[in-house]
């Protein structure tokens, strides 16, 4: 499974990359905003997307909407990892079709829990 990590801060990408590796996901790639991420995702080589919300260029919420609007990647599981935690934002992300929502700062356990839950749902739904 190949995972794309999208965050404008390299340190956060590095943290998520290390945590994912610890969870057994060794195949990851990085992008620093939605604009760079979208063409990478469109190639279809990623099976999971972890994205921040607040980024220059294209924001995470817009990346999520763009993914859902793209025929070949519209079912891609998307986990939002963000400092944004307003009720309206979470509702908007849910409506846009997010699969999981983690607020920063977060723990390794939370990341594992949310990823496990996403896969359970996918397997349960399939």
């Amino acid at each position: 499974m190949k995972i794309l990590i999208v965050d404008d801060f390299s340190t956060m990408r590095r943290i998520i990359k290390n945590l994912l590796r610890d969870l057994g996901f060794n195949n990851t790639a990085e992008a620093d905003d939605g604009k760079t991420a979208l063409p990478m995702l469109k190639t279809g080589e990623f099976q999971f997307l972890v994205t921040d919300w607040n980024m220059p260029g294209m924001q995470g919420i817009d990346l999520l909407k763009a993914v859902r609007a793209e025929e070949n990647i519209k079912t891609l599981p998307v986990l939002m990892v963000t400092a944004e935690q307003k009720r309206e934002q979470i509702v908007a992300a849910a409506e846009a079709g997010v699969n999981g929502y983690i607020v920063k700062p977060f723990t390794a356990a939370t990341l594992k829990e949310k990823i496990d839950k996403i896969f359970q749902r996918i397997e349960g739904g399939a």
Binding site: Q85, K86, R87, I90, A94, I102, V103, T110
Partner: peptide, 15 residues
């Protein structure tokens, strides 16, 4: 911050 929830648990409850 108007309308902010209080952390991961609150986010989970909302979802």
């Amino acid at each position: 911050t108007d309308g902010a929830v209080s952390g991961q648990d609150a986010v989970d409850d909302l979802l």
